[in-house]
Every structure is written in C-alpha cells, then in structure tokens.
Design a protein around this nucleic acid. Structure first.
Lengths: 105, 105
DNA sequence: GTTTTATATCGTATATAGACGATATACGTT
DNA sequence: AACGTATATCGTCTATATACGATATAAAAC
C-alpha cells in the first residue's frame, strides 16, 4: 500500500483508511491462507484457535523470515493477536475485527 | 500485490488467491472510498447506483489518470462493472460479489 | 470538420512490497 | 556456560504500486 501522504479529499474518511489497512492485510494469498488456517484449526472445546510461527513455516512453503514478515502485517492490521508463552509466540485471530469487517460489506 | 510466481504450497487455495485479489482492490483508501461512494449514491427508484469517471474526479482530489487507474483495478477485481453509453463510461457496483466476500468472513 | 468533453493509456519517477539468507534476540535445555 | 530452538529483524535485490502529466481515442457539440 503506497499512499499519498497528504490526502486532501474530504471524501476519504478515516474508516476508509482503516478498511484499506485491513483489506491490505488480506491482499496476499499467503496471508489469506494464514487467516483461514488459523480460523479452521481445531483446538478443542472453548480453546481459541492458536498457532505459532514454526507451525506456519512447516505448513506453508515459505522461508521463516517471509512468514514472519507476513504475520507482522497481519498483526499490524489487528487481525492477528500475539502472545508470548515459553519460547513460542502464539497467534490467535481477532474474530471481533473480522466481524466488524463483515459488517462493513 | 507482488507474489511469487510458483506458489507451491498446497495450502494456498484458488479461493485464497481470489479473495486476495478482491481484498487487494480494497487495499487503498481511495478505492474503498470509491466503492463506498458508489454504494451510497442515490439514483432513484430501481436505478442501480451509477457514476462516471468525471464525477469521481470532481469528488476526489486526484488527477483524472489516477482515478482511472484505480477504477481499472476495481474493474479487474470484478467489484466495478462498466458500461459505455453516449460519451460516458458508467460504473456500477457488483453487489453480488460484495455479498460473496461478505460470506467469506 | 473542427473543437470540446470524457475516458483510457503511456511514460516515468519514486516508494513500497515481497522474497530470502544472514543475523540478532530470547528463552529452554543439557 | 554452551547449545539448541523459536521468532523477529536486517540487508538486499527485484518487481509492483502509486501518482501525475502528456498523449491517445472516441464521441458529442458547435
């Protein structure tokens, strides 16, 4: 996403920009797949779906640094929530945000 | 959207790629605003919301060529449908596709 | 038929995205 | 303490995105 710094039009709202950031997070097939993987991963009763970088690298055929970079974009958009425990970083989906985006459509 | 040509992972589906293309179309504030503008434009009874390039250039503070370029991306994603009449090109929203994306979430 | 009007495309400059290997960091394990 | 493991960041190369002016195209309007 490469954007003119001084967007002057009054007709581009803050929400437009916010939606664009989230859409941009989904604007790459790998990132869509990461979200989907996380959303379908069954972690049992009441346990929110969780994964870690290592899992993702194993699952998808990209370098670890590349996966990490894509995850970063998902984190920055708010779609991924991270939590450190032991030596792992766990990712969960921000389902509330997904709902919000759904409402936008 | 810059993507490795030979995506080998079996875990990235065709639908993931399709969603990514549509998300990418919404991955810029101007394009989000264009979609929103079109979706809210009241054109009266039974008339699907419609606009033309000239309208958009007047509304949004970008060069005509820039607007045209962004519209092209929306067209290619399928979100905008174009129709030529007289000397105008009319744009309408592909509401069916929007619904489909909504279902994805 | 020339001029205006509407839109698309070309050319181009610059910024950002995407990919990876290498390196840093940080925590467990031995 | 040294080593292994998990993840993030850096450096870098290349491709694409973004923005605009200039130019093409095509249809009205005069």
């Amino acid at each position: 996403m490469r954007i003119r710094t001084e967007i002057s039009s009054d007709y581009i709202s803050e929400e437009d920009k916010r939606i664009a950031v989230i859409a941009n997070a989904l604007a790459h097939p790998l990132r869509v797949a990461l979200v989907r993987y996380l959303s379908t991963k069954n972690c049992g009763e009441g346990v929110d779906n969780v994964t870690c970088n290592k899992d993702l690298v194993k699952m998808f055929d990209y370098a670890q640094s590349t996966v990490s970079q894509h995850v970063k974009i998902l984190k920055e958009s708010g779609l991924f929530i991270t939590e450190n425990k032991d030596k792992f970083t766990f990712y969960t989906l921000n389902r509330a945000l997904l709902e919000e985006v759904k409402d936008y459509f």
